[in-house]
Simulated scan of single mutants.
Amino acid sequence: MLLHKPVDGEVHVHYGQIYVVSDDETPDLDDAFEGQTSGLCGAAEEGALWLVTGLHTGNVGFTVEVHDSAPELDPVWEDVVEVSFRPGSADAALEEWGGERVYALGLSETDLRVRYCALGMDAARELDTRIDQEQVDRYLLQFWPAPPEPDRILRQTSEYAAYWHGTTKESSSTAV
């Protein structure tokens, strides 16, 4: 059951990224994806998530949902990954690049499963920067209580998601 929807509309991204933070520290790209197979939602850094978007700069559609159990996976989403996450504090928030805007998420300090869904990543990557154009890509970030388990790629259809998944595999295989 859906408990609440703390974000529902458009958020601003820059450099194709947005984050979930539990403190004042923005996650580091390499640390966020270390040891993961998924390249869209980096959860390897404690208390933080690094989220990749297709659009480099501009507003994207973005919804955050908090559930009491695993929600059904809507077939509309082209790219879907899941990771485990535990907020480092009760102040976990979605944060735009450079801290421009912060959206409180109202998460409990407990083990959570996170599903990150994307639609339109390739078209947004091709557009690069959105100024006056119609919305091209949108994202859904869902949280629910669950014990930790490895990250998973549930669906991958875009070339841009494939690129990011390949990047994490390359960095994992070259780690010493």
Rank of each mutant, 00 (worst) to 15 (best):
G106S: 06
G58Y: 08
V76W: 05
L119F: 07
Q142C: 10
V76C: 06
L154V: 11
E45A: 12
P87I: 07
P145G: 06
E82I: 05
A44H: 08
I131N: 09
G47C: 12
R138T: 13
R101L: 10
V136I: 15
V102F: 01
F62G: 00
W50L: 10
C41Y: 00
L55R: 03
H56C: 12
A123H: 12
V60G: 02
W50F: 15
R115H: 03
A123T: 08
G58W: 13
P145R: 08
D151I: 02
T26A: 14
A90S: 14
D132E: 14
D68Y: 07
E25N: 14
D128W: 14
V83Y: 04
F143E: 03
D151G: 06
L49F: 09
C117I: 02
G98C: 11
D23V: 05
T26R: 05
R130D: 05
A90I: 03
R113E: 04
E34R: 12
R155A: 11
V114K: 00
G106V: 07
A118F: 00
R138D: 12
V66F: 09
A93P: 00
R155K: 14
A48R: 15
L55K: 04
G120V: 02
L40G: 01
I131Y: 09
D122A: 05
V76S: 10
D31G: 04
